[in-house]
Design a protein around this nucleic acid. Sequence first.
DNA 1: GCAGATTTTGCATGGTGTGCATATTTGCAT
DNA 2: ATGCAAATATGCACACCATGCAAAATCTGC
Lengths: 232, 232
Amino acid sequence: MVCIFAYHANMSEKSAASSGLRERKKKATRAALTEAAVRLAAEQGAEKVTVEAISAAAGVSVRTFFNYFESRDDVFVMTDAESGARVRRKLLDAPPGLTPLEALRDALTAELAEAEQQHELWLLHAEVLRAAPHLLVRLLGAHLADETELAEAIAERIRPGGARPGPTAPAASDEDRRKELDLYPRLLAAVAVTALRVSAEHWCARPEERVFRDVFREVFALLAAGLPAPPA
Amino acid sequence: MVCIFAYHANMSEKSAASSGLRERKKKATRAALTEAAVRLAAEQGAEKVTVEAISAAAGVSVRTFFNYFESRDDVFVMTDAESGARVRRKLLDAPPGLTPLEALRDALTAELAEAEQQHELWLLHAEVLRAAPHLLVRLLGAHLADETELAEAIAERIRPGGARPGPTAPAASDEDRRKELDLYPRLLAAVAVTALRVSAEHWCARPEERVFRDVFREVFALLAAGLPAPPA
DNA sequence: GCAGATTTTGCATGGTGTGCATATTTGCAT
DNA sequence: ATGCAAATATGCACACCATGCAAAATCTGC
């Protein structure tokens, strides 16, 4: 039950194509489990779905399920382990003329475009999460796990090379890395993740009214303007 | 396992002094359970603490534990059920000259001052949560539950009486209430909660450097300025 | 005190999660 | 192909989590 923050350790260990079949089979099993879980949850409600049912639907044993997911709830999170890394890469590669907030907005926009490919399952997933706030919290937790790394990328973009005012002791452990982070990168990362969530929630509540990108851009415009009171 | 979002239903039902001893005893039992849980967790790590141990330390049966908390993890959240209501009240009572962001900042500041009273246990709690990110996520979930209500209060402050542009169909259910909310109040509420969290995390990482209120005010200043890139 | 409501408790039951030993599958070199 | 080493899947045992139910203990108002 160490949990949430380590459940893609499997893939990241030697991720890059350590060997074809093994890697592919693991990805397939993992995908089968998540898809089975989401489809079952869409039918009968997330709380009614047991690990046994999911495992059976995916054609593996219950024990194998727990080899892939630390807990039952984790299977409903469905986070792409490499998504965070892509966003950070895009952030660092963005034109230097952009403000941090703009660069972050564009990086997230690009990532969202890629996520649109699994459209159908994604929507089903959203439906499940709406009915089970409990699981939505887990998803937030997954995003939270990426937050510190995103903050580090932001800090790197602002001050390439890592030069920072103040004491520059060499930081090794995770704990130390968190302490070394400035307030601004942490805040920007956290606010960006929040902005993404609010955009998603608001758009999900009225999907027909506007396309998602418009909501997303309005949110970032509000942030850039300092969250002014809207005109009466 | 319905969870997280309802675990203070007990007290809010008839909260206001339905009868002296009963109410006091319930509060005492609940407090004893949370305090026992936090102290045990501080000693041996949150994951090692069983419900049985907590119940024993608090002098009640295991079954009684589950009368107070929907799940084992909930005991570590330690959220004051009335805190959200106080913040909303303060927000609505704030001087009309303040911007929404300023009013929210002051309301939260005032609430934090009250929370300082349980200083010692609060710090112990922070220590436990740092070692168990899993539980920190639960706390975020608790805050998330307050978020929608906070957003409603913000909307009310902006437009007293609830007059909003667009279709004004009477909204009854919770689902409908969420749909009716504008983007701005939702965003402001979410960002404020996030700002609070980041402030707390940053301060906890370097408690000796600055007092908490200073960190908190800097965060809100950054938000009001539109999150500009910090000076090199 | 007493009747009625509330709370606590023990017990039974089923789902969740982990360690360990074993069987199977895969990668690789021969 | 064949055999060996590493990784993976599985079954089983066991502890913990969580809930429903009925009986006992406690509190409230009279």
